[in-house]
Write a protein that binds this DNA or RNA. Structure first.
Length: 272
DNA sequence: AAAGTCAACCTGTCTG
DNA sequence: CAGACAGGTTGACTTT
């Protein structure tokens, strides 16, 4: 990470903005992200992390490859239903019953749930089995997600048909995928803010030290004390010393302007 | 066995 | 009001 002066020269502004990730260009998701300005150069973690999806996807792809390439006897239970996406119709009813039984379920709720799963429970088994999408299915879904992170009904139907899944499954996959994208972006933003905080803390420490040194110089400088008070001004905010209407370069007591980034919240003085 | 992953689900909110 | 979505949760399954 570069020095703070590197940062300050970029005019860094911390704030809420919009993500620049390609995945989110066409989405309604507007996660909290940092608007870093045009020339931010100190935040390697952000750059590395913004494309985290790819890392994630790679891991997933590897996992799925491992699953696929595993011997047929190794994980029979997995392969049995994971390829049955057309009939990936393991029952959800049992799960819902688990949750609903014992609670103050109403008849209408039960009816609603029953009707919702009635077309899925076609094998008569109530055992909840977890569907794992095949590598090809995941790849196609990801490809589709890159194009548009939300689906209209027509797209959903078509994708479901292509994938041999139910439209509801496609819908759920997209919902979960959006949620994961947002979560990752939040983590990236959190990392970025942490680094900003560390940098600012360090700069604050440095400025305090500099201030102490300046105060020591002030005390040890008799000429300074002899100057008329009206000719010197000190910004109450940043405590920089400046003359009135004079060339700063000729004033031995004027500190050179530093390219600190301007923050109207922490730097209320217009002179700064 | 604990931790992680993720499909499926529920609920509340928003929008046309 | 129906449908879409976000956010949160559950539980089957996998990985460590």
């Amino acid at each position: 990470m570069g020095s703070f002066d590197d940062i300050s020269s970029t005019g860094l502004v911390l704030g809420l903005g919009f993500s620049t990730t390609a995945d989110q260009k066409s989405t309604k998701i507007a996660p909290v992200v940092l608007d870093k300005g045009p020339s931010l150069s100190f935040e390697p973690s952000l750059r590395l992390s913004l494309s985290g999806d790819h890392t994630y996807e790679k891991q997933e792809a590897v996992k799925k490859v491992n699953n696929v390439t595993r011997g047929p006897n190794d994980h029979q239970s997995v392969d049995l239903y994971r390829q049955d996406s057309a009939a990936s119709s393991y029952s959800n009813a049992s799960v819902k019953r688990e949750r609903d039984v014992g609670s103050e379920e109403t008849t209408t709720e039960v009816e609603r749930l029953s009707s919702r799963v009635s077309d899925e429970d076609d094998d008569g088994s109530n055992a909840r089995k977890k569907l794992r999408l095949t590598k090809a299915q995941s790849a196609l879904l990801e490809e589709s997600f890159k194009q548009h992170s939300t689906l209209n009904p027509k797209q959903k139907q078509e994708l479901a048909r292509n994938l041999n899944l139910r439209p509801r499954q496609v819908e759920v996959w997209f919902q979960n995928r959006r949620a994961r994208t947002k979560l990752k972006q939040t983590e990236v933003d959190c990392e970025f803010l942490k680094k900003c905080c560390e940098t600012l803390t360090e700069e604050n420490r440095r400025l305090h030290k500099e201030l102490q040194e300046l105060k020591a110089v002030k005390i040890a400088q008799p000429l300074y004390m002899q100057l008329p008070a009206a000719t010197l001004t000190m910004c109450p905010s940043c405590e920089r010393i400046g003359g009135v209407g004079e060339n700063p370069s000729k004033n031995p007591f004027t500190l050179a302007q530093k390219p600190y980034f301007y923050n109207s919240f922490t730097n209320p003085s217009a002179a700064c």
